[in-house]
């Protein structure tokens, strides 16, 4: 990862998260955006298609669709097709419960789509405790449909204290289904904030996961776990927060944010109904502040070059301070465990 070039500023995001709707047929307890009911005033089809044109003009390489459940939007395939007509790559994060052979057949006609099916445990009871009854089986059925096509497919798992011990089994399950495993970081936003204490992995679990990742090079983490990246995985992803530098987030109502985990008024970068995508990317003060963000309190840390202070969103949600450094970084996990042992010994 060449920070020198990133710091020069990109003309547009490399990729972005677009939450196309808040509507969801599930109520997952860790949902980052508290999805459920459709938001008031979500972008219309015409507005969404106009945004695709703007993303194409801006040179955005990839759109990562999320929500809500994207396939609840009746025009979602139209939005996808518009992206693909411009050569924009797409990745869809879905709960998989709405998949049919016909839908998968339509999706498989295009080589520019990848799909992540969310699952939260290798055991039915673990997954369904977080995502709802019957979801494990529905997601497995969707993965099987997808695995029979050429669509790059992964199972996406949010690491929680409940499923931390099942991650190797999920890796094996993904392999046996012919797909890959992607593990995302649990962050305290949306319903994830409400259920933070009951779902957050312990420092020992995070350290264990970091060790396991080091020997599991085929497991993807997106940009979730650079704060835990071991020496062995350097070069596999980012070593800094890419928000407002390489990526950003568009909400269902057309508001732009640095990332999906900071969709609050405090971090609103702009409104696509008032300004163009490029104007917001170039001119937002919020984005500028993220581009200039330096976590000075972490600069003395031996791991600073590996994470540059970690995830500002986690720092914000837990400490109300994006400058404070990631409270759950690898170094702090080690310190936390050592402190606890000292306390127990005393």
């Amino acid at each position: 990862m060449s920070n020198k070039y990133v710091e020069m500023g990109m003309r547009s995001p490399v990729n972005l998260t677009w939450e196309v709707t808040l509507a969801c047929n599930l109520r997952c307890s860790h949902c980052l955006s508290s999805s459920g009911e459709k938001a008031c005033n979500e972008l219309t089809t015409a507005e969404a298609l106009d945004l695709v044109e703007q993303l194409h003009t801006a040179g955005v390489f990839q759109v990562n669709f999320g929500g809500g459940e994207p396939f609840i939007r009746p025009d979602f395939e139209e939005i996808l097709a518009a992206c693909h007509s411009h050569g924009i790559m797409t990745c869809i994060s879905t709960n998989g419960t709405l998949f049919t052979p016909e839908l998968v057949s339509r999706l498989s006609r295009n080589r520019l789509v990848a799909i992540q099916v969310s699952m939260d445990g290798a055991k039915r009871e673990t997954c369904d405790a977080i995502r709802g009854a019957g979801v494990f089986d529905a997601a497995i059925a969707a993965v099987k449909l997808l695995a029979a096509t050429k669509i790059p497919t992964s199972i996406n798992t949010v690491l929680t204290t409940q499923n931390a011990d099942e991650i190797p089994a999920m890796h094996e399950m993904a392999r046996s289904l012919g797909v890959s495993l992607r593990v995302s970081r649990f962050r305290p936003s949306g319903r994830g904030a409400d259920n933070w204490e009951s779902l957050r992995p312990s420092p020992a679990q995070l350290l264990g996961f970091s060790d396991w990742l080091a020997s599991s090079g085929d497991v993807r983490t997106g940009d979730s776990f650079f704060s835990l990246t071991s020496q062995e995985r350097q070069g596999l992803g980012l070593n800094l927060c890419g928000a407002a530098k390489l990526t950003c987030c568009v909400s269902p109502t057309g508001h732009m944010y640095p990332c999906a985990f900071l969709q609050t008024d405090r971090f609103e970068a702009g409104d696509l109904r008032r300004n163009s995508f490029q104007e917001i990317w170039d001119g937002s003060e919020i984005y500028e502040s993220f581009r200039n963000l330096r976590i000075h309190s972490c600069e003395e840390c031996q791991r600073f070059d590996q994470c540059h202070g970690g995830c500002p969103a986690v720092a914000w949600h837990l400490k109300n301070d994006i400058n404070g450094g990631d409270p759950e970084c690898l170094e702090r996990c080690v310190t936390s465990i050592a402190d606890n042992r000292l306390a127990e010994a005393a």
Binding site: M1, S2, Y5, M8, G9, M10, R11, V14, N15, F61, Q62, M89, C91, A114, P152, L236, G237, L246
Partner: peptide, 16 residues
């Protein structure tokens, strides 16, 4: 095209 030159993106990683 970026200011420094060319930015390549590989969605298989993704890699830059």
């Amino acid at each position: 095209q970026e200011r420094f030159g060319l930015l390549f993106y590989d969605c298989r990683g993704p890699r830059l």
